[in-house]
Design a binder for these strands. Structure first.
Lengths: 251, 251
DNA sequence: GCGAAGTTGTGACGGTTTGTAACAGCCGCG
DNA sequence: CGCGGCTGTTACAAACCGTCACAACTTCGC
C-alpha cells in the first residue's frame, strides 16, 4: 500500500501538499513489460497472511486494503488508486487483505526481483523511499482522524482528500466515490448509519450535492476544509453544520 | 519512531578507522562518533514544521511524538525507545513534534549526510527499509486500535505491547510506564478519566497489579492478550472484565 | 513541616455515537 | 411489469465514553 498519489492531507492552514505525478522513468516503468491482470469487484488480490510473493502496480480501478479482528470487525487502512503500488513490504507475509472495489487492472512483479531492481537503481531508490514516507504521512493523518476527530470531521476529511486528489483547480469539483458506505464507515471508524446521516447533513447545508449514487459535487470546498478540522475554529466563515454547529462551537 | 530489532548500543566500541573503510555495518553504528545530547523531561527535540535537518538516534530515555490540531487536540502517534531512530523522513519539514518524556540522551546526524550514507551502503539500505516497514506495520496496528477497539481493548493492547517489548518471557513481567495518563490517553484516543477507570478495572479483576506510580506487574498475560482483542472472543478463559466480571466482584 | 501545583482516581451526568429497527430507492431478473 | 436483493436513509432507544466536579495523593519549593 504505497500511495504515490498519496491520501495525505495538508495539516495546518498553510501547507498545501503538492503531489508529484508519476515520473515516466519511474517505479511504474518497472512494471511496463508485465501482463495486465483483471480483478472483478469484490475479489481479493491477496489475503492477510499469504506469502508476500509479489508487488503490484495499479493500472486502473480502486482497491481497499483492510484487516479483520477475530470477531469480524473490519478496518480499512487505505484505498489504492491507479499509479499506486501494492504489497511493498519486507515481511514474509502480507499484513492485510487487498480487494478490488471496482473492476481493477494490475501488473504483477515478483517480490525478490523488485527488491533487486530497487537495490540496483540509484534513481528508483529515492522514489521508493519517498513513497514510503508519503504512506507514513498518510497513516499519521489517519491516526489523527481516528483518534480525535468527530464523525463530521472524519467524513469531511475523507471527501476533501478525494476532492484534492483530482487536482484542486475546479472550485466545485465532481468527485467519484466508488466505494460503498460500509467501506467508508470501516475506513473512518464509524458505522454506515453515521456516515449516511453525516453526508445528509452536509447535503442539507449546501456543502455537497449528490450527483449520482457514487458521485457528488463539492459546492463549498472551503467550508469542507473547515469542517475537516484543518482551519482554526474561530474562523467565522468556517461555521459548522445545522444543529451540530451549536453544540460544537457555542458562540 | 523507527523501531530497530536491535537495541544494542556499541558505546565503547570505537571503530579503528585506519583498517576499515567508512562502511558501517549497522544503522546505529552510523551515530557512533556523534556526541550525546541530553534533553530534560518535557523539552522538545524538534517541532512539527521545523526544517528537517537532522536524524536522531535514541540512546537512553523515552520520547513522545505527536501532532496537534488547530483547536488544541493532541494526538500522540508514537513513543520512541532506546535504539529507535527519530526524524527519518524525506520531507523538508518534520511532520510532528518530538518531546522527551523522561530524561533522554540522543545522538544527532545531519540529514543530508545520513541520506548519503544510506545511498552509498548496500548494507544499511535494507536495514532502513526494514525499519520503515516495521513502523508502517505499527501504524496499521494503531489504526486498527483507534478505529474499532473499545476503551478496554485499547488499554490492554497498549500494556501488552509494553510488556512484550521487554522481551523477557517472564509470565508476570514488571513493566515501566514512564508516560503520564494524559500521554496514554492522547495515544489511545481516550480521555485520562477513561484510561484511569479502565486501569482500575484491570486491577480489580487481577489482570494487573500496580507496583509504583509508573510501574506495574502483569499478573495474567494471557487474559491481557484476550482483552486486547487478539484472541477469539468465544475463548471462555478470556472473559471480559466489564459487566460480567462486576457480577463476580460486586463491590 | 507546610502550602501550591500537578497528577491521578472516582462519581454523577449528559452527549455523541451506536445498534436495531423499518422504510425508501436502485437494479437485475423472470 | 412486478418481484426480490442490495444499498442507502431515517427514527428511536441504549450504550459507551466524554465532560464536569471534586477528593486523594505526590512532588516541589519555601
Amino acid at each position: 500500500m504505497l500511495s504515490q498519489a498519496t491520501m495525505s492531507q495538508p495539516r495546518g492552514a498553510v501547507r498545501p501538499f503538492a503531489t508529484v505525478p508519476p515520473q515516466p522513468a519511474s517505479l511504474n516503468s518497472l512494471f511496463g513489460g508485465q501482463p495486465i491482470e483483471t480483478f472483478e469487484p469484490g475479489t481479493a488480490v491477496f489475503w492477510e497472511g499469504d506469502d508476500a510473493r509479489h508487488v503490484f502496480e495499479v493500472v486502473e480501478g480502486v482497491l481497499r486494503v483492510f484487516r479483520i479482528l477475530s470477531d469480524g470487525r473490519r478496518i480499512i487502512t487505505g484505498f489504492i488508486y491507479p499509479g499506486d503500488l501494492l504489497g511493498v513490504s519486507l515481511k514474509d507475509q502480507y499484513l492485510y487483505t487487498a480487494e478490488a472495489v471496482t473492476r481493477t487492472k494490475l501488473r504483477r512483479y515478483e517480490h525478490g526481483r523488485f527488491q533487486d531492481e530497487i537495490n540496483r537503481s540509484p534513481e528508483l531508490r529515492p522514489q521508493l523511499f519517498a513513497c514510503l514516507c508519503d504512506e507514513m504521512a498518510a497513516a499519521q493523518d489517519q491516526m489523527v482522524l481516528l483518534a480525535r476527530k468527530s464523525a463530521e470531521e472524519r467524513v469531511a476529511s475523507f471527501l476533501l482528500v478525494i476532492a484534492r486528489r483530482l487536482g484542486d483547480d475546479a472550485r466545485q469539483p465532481v468527485i467519484e466515490i466508488p466505494m460503498t458506505r460500509l467501506d467508508m464507515a470501516d475506513y473512518l471508524g464509524l458505522t454506515i448509519e453515521t456516515v449516511s446521516r453525516t453526508m445528509t447533513r452536509l447535503t442539507n447545508c449546501g456543502v455537497i450535492a449528490p450527483s449520482s449514487r457514487h458521485a457528488m459535487v463539492v459546492r463549498k470546498l472551503g467550508k469542507l476544509a473547515a469542517l475537516a478540522g484543518e482551519i482554526d475554529a474561530d474562523d467565522k466563515s468556517a461555521a459548522g453544520v445545522g444543529a451540530v454547529q451549536q453544540a460544537v462551537w457555542p458562540q
